[in-house]
């Protein structure tokens, strides 16, 4: 059964028809064209699909799109200013925390939620904040450094 539903994504209201079993990830990517959010494991293990739901990181692959009604969804597209980069994006580039880039949008969303809640996290707090995000390219040192740099840049 398909239901018409209103989803608020990056501050924009979208009216879409959604099957009950459809996850938020596939609606974002295939109905709204917001392909910054990635499908990695499709098993809620890797965090490539991380979006913010009312400001909190959530794995969009295991979240039903219909449950997002009335909530505010933020994807990586919603963080990036029209001209230039978000500070987290710039820090990741400067620190060399991006190789293939597939995990990067999810990492940015987790880091953004962490810094919103805790503007000066310790290294341990950054590790916990990013503990739901897997990267198979870089190792994590440069990613941690990028988040720490963003925090110290304020």
């Amino acid at each position: 059964m398909t239901e018409p539903v209103m989803l608020t994504v990056n501050g924009i209201d979208y009216r879409v028809n959604v099957d009950m079993g459809r996850n938020l990830l596939s609606v974002l990517r295939n109905e709204l064209g917001l392909t910054g959010t990635k499908e990695g494991c499709d098993d809620s293990e890797c965090g490539a699909c991380m979006v913010l739901l009312d400001g909190q990181p959530v794995n969009s692959c295991s979240y039903l799109a219909l449950q997002a009604q009335g909530r505010s969804v933020t994807t990586v597209e919603g963080l990036t200013p029209a001209d230039g980069l978000h500070p987290l994006q710039r820090s990741l580039l400067e620190q060399g925390g991006v190789q293939c880039g597939f995990c990067t949008p999810g990492i940015i969303m987790s880091a953004r939620a962490l810094l919103d809640r805790n503007p000066s996290p310790s290294e341990e707090e950054i590790r916990i904040g990013l503990s739901g995000n897997l990267c198979r390219c870089t190792g994590y040192a440069k990613i941690l450094a990028a988040v720490a740099q963003t925090a110290s840049d304020g």
């Binding site: 079993g21 996850n23 809620s44 295991s62 979240y63 039903l64 449950q67």
Partner: peptide, 25 residues
């Protein structure tokens, strides 16, 4: 019932058990 869906939806996607035909959040 469904709350966070972290067991129900993941389980359905893994093929452990199909998603119920009727859900209440």
């Amino acid at each position: 019932p469904v709350a966070g869906g972290t067991d129900l939806v993941v389980g359905a996607r893994q093929g452990k058990a199909p998603l119920p035909t009727s859900l209440v959040a």
